[in-house]
Structures are given as C-alpha cells and as structure tokens.
C-alpha cells in the first residue's frame, strides 16, 4: 500500500515536470503564441490583431491566443509584453499613434518607440465628422465656424488618435476648440450622433458604421487622397483646403520587442507578409473604410520615427505632454 502511494506520487511529479519542460528543443516556434491586445475587445486594435492572428496561425503552425489587457491607454499590456521573456512568443497588437506617445506621456518612460519591431497591416485615416443634422454642410463652413472658437470636439480620451487629430487640425487650421474626452472611440462617436458635441475626428474605421447609417456626415479625410466608403460615398481630402496638412491616421498591427531572436523575427516577418497581403486582410480593411498595408522592418521604424516627432511635439505644445520630447532624444520636426 505504501509503495503504491509513493509510485503514484512520483508519477504525478513526473507528469507535472513533463508538461512544464517538454517544449524546449526543436525549431522556432515550439510553443503557442500569446498576443496581448492592450485595449478592450471590439476596437480597431483588437479586430486587426485577431484578423492577423487567424492568418498567421496558418503560416506558423501554432495557435495564437489573443488576450485583452486594457488599461492605462494600452501601456499596461505593453509593459506586460516587455516583462515577458523576449523570445518571440509574446506579441502585442496596437496602433502606432499609441506606441509613440507612451514614453513622452510618462506611461513607459524607459521604453522608446525605437525599441519595437513593428508590423503594420492596416492604415485608417482620421475623418472629420459632424452629426447628420449639423448646420455645417461642408468643410469650409466648418472651418469658418471653428475659427470663431468654442466648437466642441469629442475624442476617445486624452492622447487618443482623435485627440491628436484635433490638435493637428487646430494647429494647421489656426483655430481653438474645446476638447471633450470620452471613454473610448465608440462612446465618443455615439455622443456626436446624438448631438452632444459639434464634431468628432476619430478614425474612419470607428465612424464607418455610423456614416453608412446616415447618422453622421463626413466633411473631410485627413489624407492626401480621397476616401471612398461603400454605401456612403467619397470623402474629399483635407488637403483640398489646407494644402500642407499632414497625413493623419492610425496604422494598426503587431508590435514586438526589437531584441527577440533573429530566427523568430524572420519567421514572424515571413508569416506577416503573407497575412498582410492576403485577400482576407484587404477585404477586412475595405469594409471598414481603411487600406491594407504591409510595412515592417526599417520602413515601419521610419513611419514610427516621423510620427513620434510630429505628435509628441504637438502634444507638448498643447500641454498634454509635460516633458520636452527632446529629453527623450526626439528632435523637433
């Protein structure tokens, strides 16, 4: 009786150890991948990450599990990724606009936007929208009203893409506005629909549904070319009226620590290229008023660098960023 007891106990211990240490040998990837999305489910970051995950699972032959870790404007989940071993098995799904501000907003003071290997799959521009019953029929009328001051503009929160767009609009249009932050993109958009605020400048992905439902009217897209949304129509680019206006939008995709093993990096890049250029991704983007892109490596790093310079200095002048970005080695554009 006693011996059986010890044999059983030993077996249990072996089982536990076995499950723990088996996946050590063999070529990368040997484990399932944890994809942390530091935002709530259903948002643009989440949807992009999940669509990419399904496509990349096929190429990597491993399961990719999406974990949502919202909080701290996405900084908590991003920190969790950096805390995990940098072995290529922990990814994050986010947007360039958030990644570039974490350091200057002092959320992650030790992690620069240059510490990421970025894989950008979807570009969605910011769109200037007003409620369907708004008196402003076109962009010039809106700009004129904005110049008189005191227009209210909703956004998904301080430092969100809608806030950044509004700040850039204020700088290039030479206007002042009142910023009304909400708890995320969807509440900001619905508040605009019911006329609580004058305008919203969130990403086109977030307003497409309401545009199609004729609850919102789009006045201009912050891009250099027009944007066509199926079931709504074509939106003129803002550069028609303000020629030097920069391209403002979100680039969604995967962000990993830069110092993962080279083997993992090349496997992931390979899988990403296939996924981002797939038919599914193109269809996913088009349905949401966005464009499928495929940026990685140095090209993606360049996009982040330019964005970091523009946005952080803009937020610094607006008083949102308290420390001068040059302290973090980000030169003025």
């Amino acid at each position: 009786m006693k011996t059986t007891k010890y044999i059983l106990l030993a077996l249990m211990v072996i089982c536990i150890l076995g499950i723990t240490f088996v996946p050590v040998l063999a070529a990368w990837p040997t484990q399932n991948i944890n994809l942390i999305v530091p935002w709530s489910p259903g948002g643009a970051s989440d949807l992009t990450a999940r669509t990419l995950a399904v496509q990349m699972e096929k190429a990597l032959g491993r399961r990719i599990t999406v974990t949502n870790t919202p909080g701290g404007s996405g900084a908590i989940g991003t920190q969790a990724m950096f805390d995990a071993p940098h072995d290529g098995y922990t990814w994050s799904g986010n947007a360039d606009g958030s990644i570039i501000t974490y350091q200057c907003l002092e959320y992650l003071p030790d992690i620069s936007h240059r510490d990421y290997a970025s894989f950008l799959a979807v570009f969605t521009p910011n769109v200037i929208c007003v409620p369907a019953n708004s008196p402003y029929q076109d962009f010039p009328a809106f700009l004129e009203a904005a110049k008189k001051g005191n227009l209210t503009i909703a956004s998904a929160g301080v430092g969100s893409s809608g806030h950044q767009a509004a700040e850039i609009f204020a700088a290039y249009g030479g206007v002042e506005y009142r910023h009304v932050p909400y708890q995320g993109g969807a509440p900001a958009v619905t508040a605009t629909v019911r006329g609580e605020v004058d305008s919203v400048m969130q990403l086109s992905m977030e307003v497409t549904e309401m545009l199609r439902a004729k609850q919102l009217r789009a006045l201009a897209v912050m891009d250099s070319e027009p944007l066509t949304i199926d079931g709504y129509g074509t939106i003129s680019p803002i550069t028609e009226w303000i020629p030097d206006f920069p391209v403002v939008g979100g680039r969604f995709g995967l962000f990993l620590p830069k110092d993962i093993p080279a083997e993992a990096n090349s496997k992931i890049t390979e899988a990403f290229i296939a996924a981002s250029q797939s038919e599914t991704m193109a269809k996913f983007a088009e349905e949401r008023g966005s464009k499928a892109i495929s940026l990685y490596g140095d090209e993606a790093a360049q996009v982040l660098e330019e964005g970091a310079r523009l946005v952080n200095w803009m937020l610094y002048r607006a008083g949102v960023v308290k420390i001068a970005p040059s302290e973090f080695g980000i030169p003025e554009p």
Binding site: K5, L8, L9, M12, C15, I16
Partner: peptide
C-alpha cells in the same frame, strides 16, 4: 493523503 493527491492533480 492519496485521495488528496489525486484530487489536487486532477483539479490542476
């Protein structure tokens, strides 16, 4: 002891 061990490992 034995029962406990089995339950514990099963739960885990």
């Amino acid at each position: 002891w034995l029962q406990t061990g089995i339950i514990a490992v099963l739960v885990g």
